Deep mutational scan, measured.
Amino acid sequence: RTAFSSEQLARLKREFNENRYLTERRRQQLSSELGLNEAQIKIWFQNKRA
């Protein structure tokens, strides 16, 4: 289980509010910017949509 920092969570929530689905390219960008792997971001979005 991933423990996200408050900064990472704030960024993910802001991104989710703008778009509930990420393109592969956007997921790669977020992964690089947040220091998370793409799978972690993908799962976070899946869980948030559920």
Rank of each mutant, 00 (worst) to 15 (best):
Arg1Pro: 15
Arg1Ala: 14
Arg1Ser: 15
Arg1Leu: 15
Arg1Gly: 14
Arg1Tyr: 15
Arg1Trp: 13
Arg1His: 15
Arg1Gln: 15
Arg1Phe: 15
Arg1Ile: 15
Arg1Met: 15
Thr2Trp: 14
Thr2Val: 13
Thr2Leu: 13
Thr2Arg: 09
Thr2Met: 07
Thr2Ser: 07
Ala3Asn: 12
Ala3Asp: 13
Ala3Cys: 09
Ala3Pro: 14
Ala3Ser: 13
Ala3Val: 12
Ala3His: 13
Ala3Gly: 12
Phe4Ser: 02
Phe4Ile: 09
Phe4Trp: 06
Phe4Ala: 02
Phe4Asn: 02
Phe4Gly: 01
Phe4Gln: 01
Phe4Val: 05
Phe4Arg: 02
Ser5Gly: 04
Ser5Thr: 15
Ser5Trp: 04
Ser5Lys: 04
Ser5Leu: 04
Ser5Glu: 03
Ser5Tyr: 02
Ser5Met: 03
Ser6Gln: 13
Ser6Gly: 08
Ser6Arg: 11
Ser6Lys: 13
Ser6Thr: 12
Ser6Glu: 13
Ser6His: 10
Ser6Val: 11
Glu7Asn: 06
Glu7Lys: 08
Glu7Thr: 10
Glu7Pro: 04
Gln8Lys: 03
Gln8Gly: 01
Gln8Glu: 03
Leu9Ala: 04
Leu9Tyr: 05
Leu9Phe: 04
Leu9Gln: 05
Leu9Cys: 13
Leu9Arg: 06
Leu9Ser: 04
Leu9Trp: 05
Leu9His: 05
Ala10Leu: 10
Ala10Lys: 08
Ala10Val: 08
Ala10Asp: 13
Ala10Asn: 11
Ala10Pro: 01
Ala10Met: 10
Ala10Cys: 10
Arg11Lys: 09
Arg11Asn: 04
Arg11Ile: 12
Arg11Met: 07
Arg11Thr: 07
Arg11His: 06
Arg11Tyr: 06
Arg11Gly: 06
Arg11Ser: 06
Arg11Phe: 06
Arg11Pro: 02
Leu12Thr: 00
Leu12Lys: 01
Leu12Ile: 03
Leu12Glu: 01
Leu12Ser: 00
Leu12Ala: 01
Leu12Arg: 01
Leu12Gly: 00
Leu12His: 00
Leu12Asp: 01
Leu12Met: 04
Leu12Phe: 01
Leu12Gln: 00
Leu12Pro: 00
Lys13Glu: 15
Lys13Trp: 14
Lys13Ala: 12
Lys13Met: 14
Lys13Ser: 12
Lys13Thr: 15
Lys13Gly: 08
Lys13Ile: 15
Lys13Tyr: 14
Lys13Asp: 14
Lys13Val: 15
Lys13Arg: 11
Lys13His: 15
Arg14Gly: 05
Arg14Cys: 11
Arg14Ala: 11
Arg14Asn: 08
Arg14Phe: 09
Arg14Leu: 13
Arg14Trp: 08
Arg14Tyr: 11
Arg14Pro: 01
Arg14Glu: 13
Arg14Ser: 10
Glu15Val: 05
Glu15Asn: 00
Glu15Met: 03
Glu15Trp: 02
Glu15Lys: 01
Glu15Tyr: 04
Glu15Ala: 11
Glu15Phe: 04
Glu15Arg: 02
Glu15Asp: 02
Glu15Cys: 03
Glu15Ser: 04
Glu15Leu: 04
Glu15His: 03
Phe16His: 03
Phe16Cys: 03
Phe16Asp: 01
Phe16Ile: 03
Phe16Gly: 00
Phe16Glu: 01
Phe16Ser: 02
Phe16Met: 04
Phe16Leu: 03
Phe16Thr: 02
Asn17Arg: 11
Asn17Met: 12
Asn17Phe: 11
Asn17Gly: 08
Asn17Cys: 12
Asn17His: 10
Asn17Ala: 14
Asn17Ile: 08
Asn17Lys: 15
Asn17Tyr: 10
Asn17Val: 08
Asn17Glu: 14
Glu18Trp: 06
Glu18Asp: 07
Glu18Ile: 10
Glu18Met: 10
Glu18Gly: 04
Glu18Thr: 08
Glu18Lys: 13
Glu18Ser: 08
Asn19Val: 04
Asn19Lys: 05
Asn19Gly: 05
Asn19Tyr: 06
Asn19Gln: 04
Asn19Asp: 08
Asn19Trp: 04
Asn19Ile: 03
Asn19Glu: 04
Asn19Phe: 05
Asn19Ser: 09
Asn19Arg: 06
Arg20Asp: 05
Arg20Gly: 07
Arg20Met: 10
Arg20Asn: 12
Arg20Trp: 08
Arg20Val: 07
Arg20Phe: 05
Arg20Tyr: 06
Arg20Glu: 10
Arg20Ala: 12
Arg20Cys: 08
Arg20Pro: 15
Arg20Leu: 04
Tyr21Cys: 09
Tyr21Val: 09
Tyr21Ser: 05
Tyr21Ile: 11
Tyr21Thr: 08
Tyr21Phe: 12
Tyr21Arg: 06
Tyr21Gln: 07
Tyr21Trp: 09
Tyr21Ala: 05
Leu22Trp: 03
Leu22Tyr: 01
Leu22Ala: 03
Leu22Glu: 05
Leu22Ser: 02
Leu22Phe: 03
Leu22Arg: 01
Leu22Pro: 14
Leu22Ile: 07
Thr23Pro: 06
Thr23Glu: 04
Thr23Asp: 12
Thr23Gln: 04
Thr23Tyr: 03
Thr23Cys: 05
Thr23Phe: 01
Thr23Val: 03
Thr23Leu: 03
Glu24His: 11
Glu24Arg: 15
Glu24Trp: 07
Glu24Met: 09
Glu24Asn: 11
Glu24Ala: 13
Glu24Phe: 08
Glu24Gln: 12
Glu24Gly: 09
Arg25Gln: 13
Arg25Ala: 15
Arg25Thr: 13
Arg25Trp: 07
Arg25Pro: 08
Arg25Gly: 14
Arg25Val: 14
Arg25Ser: 13
Arg25Cys: 09
Arg25Ile: 11
Arg25Tyr: 11
Arg25Phe: 12
Arg25Met: 09
Arg25Asn: 11
Arg26Ser: 05
Arg26Leu: 06
Arg26Tyr: 06
Arg26Ala: 07
Arg26Pro: 01
Arg26Gly: 05
Arg26Val: 07
Arg27Pro: 02
Arg27Asn: 09
Arg27Trp: 09
Arg27Ser: 14
Arg27Leu: 15
Arg27Gln: 13
Arg27Met: 15
Arg27Ala: 15
Arg27Ile: 15
Gln28Tyr: 08
Gln28Cys: 07
Gln28Asn: 07
Gln28Ser: 08
Gln28Ile: 10
Gln28Arg: 11
Gln28Thr: 08
Gln28Val: 08
Gln28His: 10
Gln28Trp: 06
Gln29Lys: 08
Gln29Arg: 10
Gln29Cys: 08
Gln29His: 06
Gln29Asn: 06
Gln29Glu: 11
Gln29Leu: 10
Leu30Tyr: 01
Leu30His: 00
Leu30Glu: 00
Leu30Val: 03
Leu30Ile: 07
Leu30Gly: 00
Leu30Pro: 00
Leu30Phe: 01
Leu30Ala: 00
Leu30Cys: 03
Leu30Asp: 00
Leu30Asn: 00
Ser31Val: 07
Ser31Cys: 08
Ser31His: 02
Ser31Phe: 03
Ser31Gly: 06
Ser32Cys: 11
Ser32Trp: 11
Ser32Gly: 07
Ser32Glu: 14
Ser32Phe: 13
Ser32Tyr: 12
Ser32Pro: 02
Ser32Thr: 12
Ser32Asp: 11
Glu33Lys: 03
Glu33Gly: 01
Glu33Ser: 04
Glu33Thr: 04
Glu33Ile: 06
Glu33Pro: 00
Glu33Gln: 05
Glu33Val: 05
Glu33Arg: 02
Glu33Ala: 05
Leu34His: 01
Leu34Pro: 00
Leu34Tyr: 02
Leu34Ser: 03
Leu34Trp: 02
Leu34Arg: 00
Leu34Glu: 00
Leu34Met: 07
Leu34Val: 04
Leu34Asp: 01
Leu34Gly: 00
Gly35Asp: 06
Gly35Asn: 08
Gly35Tyr: 03
Gly35Ile: 03
Gly35His: 07
Gly35Arg: 05
Gly35Met: 07
Gly35Ala: 05
Gly35Trp: 02
Gly35Gln: 07
Gly35Ser: 06
Gly35Glu: 06
Leu36Thr: 03
Leu36Glu: 01
Leu36Cys: 07
Leu36Phe: 02
Leu36Gly: 00
Leu36Asp: 01
Leu36Lys: 02
Leu36His: 01
Leu36Val: 10
Leu36Ala: 04
Leu36Asn: 00
Asn37Lys: 12
Asn37Phe: 06
Asn37Ser: 15
Asn37Asp: 15
Asn37Cys: 07
Asn37Gln: 12
Asn37Thr: 15
Asn37Ile: 05
Asn37Trp: 04
Glu38Cys: 04
Glu38Asn: 03
Glu38Asp: 05
Glu38Tyr: 04
Glu38Gly: 07
Glu38Pro: 13
Ala39Asn: 13
Ala39Leu: 14
Ala39Gln: 14
Ala39Tyr: 13
Ala39His: 13
Ala39Phe: 12
Ala39Asp: 15
Ala39Pro: 04
Ala39Gly: 10
Ala39Ile: 12
Ala39Thr: 14
Gln40Pro: 02
Gln40Arg: 06
Gln40Met: 11
Gln40Gly: 03
Gln40His: 09
Gln40Ile: 14
Gln40Tyr: 09
Gln40Lys: 06
Gln40Trp: 11
Gln40Ala: 13
Gln40Glu: 14
Gln40Phe: 11
Ile41Pro: 00
Ile41Thr: 01
Ile41Gln: 01
Ile41Asn: 00
Ile41Met: 03
Ile41Tyr: 01
Ile41Val: 07
Ile41Phe: 01
Ile41Glu: 01
Ile41Arg: 00
Lys42Phe: 12
Lys42Leu: 15
Lys42Thr: 14
Lys42Asp: 15
Lys42Gly: 08
Lys42Cys: 13
Lys42Trp: 14
Lys42Asn: 13
Lys42Tyr: 09
Lys42Pro: 00
Ile43Val: 10
Ile43Cys: 11
Ile43Thr: 12
Ile43Gly: 08
Ile43Glu: 15
Ile43Trp: 15
Ile43Asn: 10
Ile43Tyr: 12
Ile43Met: 11
Ile43Arg: 12
Ile43Ser: 10
Trp44Ala: 02
Trp44Leu: 02
Trp44Met: 02
Trp44Val: 02
Trp44Ile: 02
Trp44Arg: 00
Trp44Lys: 00
Trp44Cys: 03
Trp44Asp: 00
Trp44Pro: 00
Phe45Ser: 01
Phe45Cys: 02
Phe45Ala: 01
Phe45Val: 01
Phe45Glu: 02
Phe45Lys: 00
Gln46Lys: 11
Gln46Met: 10
Gln46Ile: 12
Gln46Asn: 10
Gln46Asp: 14
Asn47Cys: 09
Asn47Ile: 13
Asn47Gly: 06
Asn47Phe: 11
Asn47Gln: 13
Asn47Glu: 13
Asn47Val: 10
Asn47Ala: 09
Asn47Leu: 13
Asn47Met: 13
Asn47Ser: 10
Asn47Pro: 02
Asn47Trp: 15
Asn47Lys: 12
Lys48Gln: 15
Lys48Glu: 15
Lys48Val: 06
Lys48Ser: 09
Lys48Pro: 04
Lys48His: 11
Lys48Arg: 13
Arg49Phe: 09
Arg49Thr: 09
Arg49Gly: 08
Arg49Val: 10
Arg49Ala: 09
Arg49Leu: 11
Arg49Glu: 08
Ala50Arg: 14
Ala50Thr: 08
Ala50Asp: 11
Ala50Gly: 08
Ala50Trp: 09
Ala50Cys: 11
Ala50His: 12
Ala50Ile: 10
